[in-house]
């Protein structure tokens, strides 16, 4: 299901990774930057959305600025035979922004389901964690809540310009990370 990005797609990614131009016809502006037509830019964006390369086009609010200042990395030890059924239910909860199955690393780490929970107060976050615990029920044997006590580094991830990374062109079929 993964495919190699075509050079035209890469050009669109590079032209929009800092954002969409704030002009009346933003796709025409991207077309001008990439040398493609407006119609082709729109068609390729829609195709990349269909394929999951683009999650969606829209705005990303700053949680802190909206008063959603509390977050927690909740981690759950869920029975292996149940985790693939329950994981999507946790991921669908409106206050869960990221939800993944990851490997256990015993003895230090028994948890295989990770869910990021956000809320306007610590009390609200605690209530939400209870909601997840109820949803998982007996399939969950233990859980923990890790809050970040300090941001040590936060840099965005950027695609390098294609001339720097010819290797990327052949990379696909990777396992999920």
């Amino acid at each position: 299901m993964t495919r190699v990005l075509e050079p035209e797609d890469r050009a669109i990614v590079e032209a929009t990774q800092a954002g969409l131009p704030l002009v009346e016809q933003p796709y025409a502006a991207v077309a001008e930057k990439t040398g493609l037509s407006e119609a082709e830019v729109m068609a390729r964006l829609l195709r990349m959305m269909d394929e999951g390369i683009i999650r969606r086009i829209g705005i990303v609010p700053n949680h802190y600025a909206l008063g959603i200042k509390h977050n927690a990395m909740t981690v759950w030890d869920v029975a292996d035979e149940e985790v693939s059924r329950l994981g999507p239910l946790v991921g669908a909860l409106p206050f869960v922004t990221h939800c993944y199955r990851r490997p256990r690393r015993e003895p230090i780490w028994r948890y295989n389901l990770f869910a990021m929970v956000h809320g306007r107060s610590a009390v609200v976050v605690a209530e939400k964690i209870s909601t997840i615990a109820e949803l998982l029920g007996d399939a969950c044997r233990a859980h923990d809540v890790l809050v970040s006590t300090r941001i040590l580094k936060k840099t965005g991830m950027r695609l390098k310009s294609s001339s720097d990374t010819p290797k990327n062109a052949r990379k696909h079929e990777r396992k999920a990370v």
Binding site: V13, T16, I53, I54, I57, N168, K171
Partner: peptide, 25 residues
């Protein structure tokens, strides 16, 4: 909204896993 930091981004949200490259927590 972008200038004041209420929004951090406006545009396509790319699935980093799908752009080539690897990620690991």
């Amino acid at each position: 909204l972008l200038a004041s930091g209420v929004a951090t981004r406006f545009g396509p949200m790319y699935n980093a896993d799908r752009l080539g490259g690897a990620f690991c927590l």
